[in-house]
C-alpha cells in the first residue's frame, strides 16, 4: 500500500447490495475534496466489477482493490 493513498474517508457499506455501494460512494465523494481518497468496505462482490466501471464513468480514479474473500476494500481517489 502506498502511503499517500491512505484513505481520508472510510465508507462502511458492508451488507449493502447493488447499487447502494456506488450510491453511498457518490454521496460521500461529494463531500470530499479533489485528491482525497475514500476506502469503500463492501461485501457485495458485484462492486468488484461495478465500482471500477463507476470510476471510469464518473472520471474518478480507482486506486486499488483488496479482496480478503469476504470483504472487499476498494480505494478511490476523487479526481474531479
Amino acid at each position: 500500500m502506498n502511503e499517500e493513498d491512505k484513505p481520508d474517508v472510510v465508507l462502511d457499506a458492508v451488507g449493502l447490495l447493488c447499487p447502494m455501494p456506488a450510491v453511498k460512494t457518490a454521496m460521500e465523494l461529494e463531500k470530499m475534496k479533489k485528491g482525497e481518497v475514500i476506502e469503500v468496505l463492501t461485501s457485495d462482490h458485484i462492486s468488484k466489477t461495478d465500482l471500477p466501471v463507476w470510476c471510469r464513468e464518473t472520471g474518478n480514479q480507482l486506486v486499488d482493490i483488496k479482496d480478503d474473500g469476504e470483504i472487499l476494500k476498494i480505494r478511490i481517489r476523487k479526481a474531479i
Partner: peptide, 11 residues
C-alpha cells in the same frame, strides 16, 4: 429506483 439511483450516482 435501483436503476434511477445507480444512474444518479454516476452523475
Amino acid at each position: 429506483f435501483i436503476i434511477a439511483t445507480g444512474a444518479a450516482s454516476m452523475g
